[in-house]
Design a binder for these strands. Structure first.
Lengths: 191, 191
DNA sequence: GTCTATATACCGATAGAC
DNA sequence: GTCTATCGGTATATAGAC
């Protein structure tokens, strides 16, 4: 693995467990075994680092979602996969997904990074709306109203559930908050 | 108004608009017209300040909710008031409620403050569960399932909707995210 | 209660040698 | 690419005069 990739991995972990403001180039240097000045060689400013973080993350998650869409038997199982993705990002209640971590520290992030996060939010919300539309056709989710409203509501729900669960250091709070939505999923057929 | 109260007011505004980490005793001194050292006279450490903030805030909000409960014609109008409270806290999309602001920076807050925030979350969730129970009796909300599940879901929804709306600097995102829930409220009779 | 002055620590970032 | 050394800025917090 390249040093750049190693730095990005540690930076993502630190950002998601401690928050963007709560880790420094010194922490990153300690984690990778090089010196602060060498970290600056790879990412000249923290603005550059945060932008690289959200770009890598966004690409990875969008690919995962597209794969879920293609492999799922119906909309319900695709959305169950989506819930698992956000549930797993919590770990033992000590980690957030990068999108929530970045949304929680808008003040310390440069405009270009924030714009990229907003693009990611739109991508995910579009994906969700697509699955709710699919559910209107395959009948795998109970009482779907407007797919776009459903998507906006579910996105806010999982982000809020992560925030609460991580603040309480208890991942069960996530499960509790989304359980009502989970109950609307009719898994049926395949899985 | 006492200097202590003046400091708390400005600190709450700064915490909600910029975040806990992003304001300093220097900002607080500039806002109130006294010097940094004088701020330390009123709140020796930032830990003391954050604890005072959540205690004041919690008392105020719990009183507001109890008043809403007593004055409302039914559960639906009480919950409509709850949504307005969180919607208004957003301002023009540039402010969070203190609970979300604190949940977003758990790393820089002392354990006693975090414990007080968790108590506040329980108080609000209990209030919500009470209103959903009330709705099962007055029929003012469509298809209420388990009141405790409904409460956990609605709390996560409004916190997540605030986070997203504030990150996008657009309060409409809050309204969009909660619109599906709003549609379940049957306002009817009085208001 | 408020002030000036200061202590101590850490931050992001840069210069320049190797 | 990585290093040592350092700059300028800001943070929380304290000492002691008024």
């Amino acid at each position: 693995m390249t040093m750049r990739a190693d730095l990005l991995n540690h930076a993502e972990t630190l950002a998601r467990t401690r928050g963007i403001d709560a880790f420094s180039y010194a922490d990153l240097a300690a984690a990778t075994g090089i010196r602060k000045a060498s970290v600056h060689y790879h990412f000249a400013t923290k603005a550059d680092l945060t932008l690289a973080l959200i770009e890598d993350y966004s690409t990875r998650i969008v690919e995962t979602l597209d794969h879920m869409k293609d492999q799922s038997a119906n909309a319900a199982s695709a959305l169950a996969g989506f819930l698992s993705l956000y549930r797993n990002a919590l770990g033992d209640g000590d980690s957030l997904c990068l999108c929530v971590a970045f949304s929680a520290s808008t003040d310390s992030l440069p405009a270009t990074t924030l714009a990229r996060v907003e693009t990611f939010r739109h991508d995910v919300t579009d994906w969700l709306a697509g699955q709710f539309q699919r559910a209107r056709e395959d009948g795998s989710i109970r009482e779907v109203t407007d797919p776009r409203k459903e998507a906006a509501a579910l996105f806010a729900l999982v982000e809020g559930a992560q925030l609460v669960a991580r603040a309480a250091r208890n991942s069960d709070r996530f499960t509790d908050a989304v359980s009502q939505f989970s109950d609307r999923l009719i898994m049926g057929v395949t899985q």
